[in-house]
Design a protein around this nucleic acid. Structure first.
Lengths: 217, 217
DNA sequence: CTTAATCTTGACCGACCGGTCGCCTATTGC
DNA sequence: GCAATAGGCGACCGGTCGGTCAAGATTAAG
């Protein structure tokens, strides 16, 4: 610091924040790099060396922050979860619309997100959780459970909005939990098909059936 | 041959078949081994060496039959396609039931298949095509296109049965192609969720919504 | 200024990756 | 019987995999 004079509280705070940022900067660069690479390819398809190169970090530093590639991937999943919350779930489920219309808006925000990431990556990448789930569910129990939890938290949002719709009398008697699960399944399937066809428009084409899904009680 | 006497046509045929079988036996052992391993883990998660070990074939022989691991995987997809046809699609879509009921039976045969393979493998393995699609769609264009074709052929079956239902007046006016696509998406999503939760029963729980899916024209 | 903890670095590890090669044998067509 | 071919074999290749380590630089705290 060029001015080491008597530090005010504000200065301390700012400095502290910068330090925190600095401390976690390398770590975050690693996570971001891994997130981008793994999301656009696959878990096994990306090596630690490549992740480090992209983050401009040496491999030795990598293993200072993460004990293993697996631990890193858990951090990546957390990061992706935040991204999805911020860019898709929170905007879609804002309470400025009636419940069912929120579900329809969810399809739109999902489409926008996929279209945008497709523009950046050159290909549609689908659901990062679904991608990892199918690749690793049978071979990494820790990751499998983490992804199960991510899915459960998304289902919870669907459940909540379905309950609201039911209370408002917008829909008949349905098994709310099962319907929420079915809706997430449909979303995952749509994204799988869209990724396979490399066509984000599939989301808009298949979207109309989403909010209609019902599992009777 | 112990009896090289004047060969009859029948003998020739039998011998030829045996020879053919022998010739393709090693190859088929490789394909079967790779199919089982890749289906129960992933493409990148299985090495050529392990495939050869399980097939009791030396690596040198492997590369006599397949120029690359990628070429092998194309053969594996073909093999899986036949298996799925025989064990799921053909039984489900037999014409002894009205169209819509065939769709409902499809869910059941799919459940049985998944339950059986889960019993063998110790875990539910989901859809082999979906698994490969999410892992490789962004990094291997050849495999991506092949899987796209597999999906198209399954969609075609759904389309056909939907058309029949429409002709019979069982369902209203729908976009048959889009609805078929949506149905496959839902199936893929169900299997993804079931694999992630490692619970085949999810198929029966979410199944009831399958035949109800409609994309309006 | 000193100490201790945090961070960074680059060389290094054995294991495994997909793939190659030359050699040997068994079977084929002539 | 002979030549040609297909199949089988095992050692071997360079490269990459995830991961380790010891020593140096940087920083915060007393």
């Amino acid at each position: 610091m060029k001015n080491p004079g008597n530090p005010l509280v504000l200065d301390r705070t700012v400095y502290y924040n910068m330090r925190m940022l600095g401390e976690h900067d390398t770590r975050q660069r690693i996570v971001s790099s891994a997130r981008d690479l793994i999301y656009s390819r696959s878990y096994a398809g990306v090596g630690v060396a490549e992740i480090c190169d992209r983050a401009d970090v040496k491999k030795g530093s990598f293993y200072h922050f993460f004990p293993s590639k697996q631990e890193l991937s858990l951090a990546v999943i957390d990061d992706l979860r935040v991204t999805m919350e911020d860019r898709v779930l929170i905007p879609a489920f804002a309470r400025d619309l009636p419940p069912i219309e929120r579900l329809e808006r969810f399809v739109k925000t999902l489409y926008e997100f996929q279209k945008n990431t497709a523009a950046e990556a050159g290909r549609i990448l689908g659901c990062p959780f679904g991608n990892l789930a199918l690749e690793l569910a049978t071979s990494d129990e820790t990751i499998r459970r983490k992804l199960e939890a991510v899915f459960a938290s998304i289902e919870a949002r669907f459940e909540h909005v379905l309950s609201e719709a039911q209370t408002a009398g917008d829909i008949g008697e349905v098994d709310v939990q099962a319907t929420a699960k079915a809706m997430l399944a449909y979303i995952e399937g749509m994204l799988l098909m869209a990724k396979t066809a490399n066509d984000p428009n599939l989301i808009m084409r298949l979207g109309p059936a989403f909010a209609q899904i019902r599992i009777p009680r």
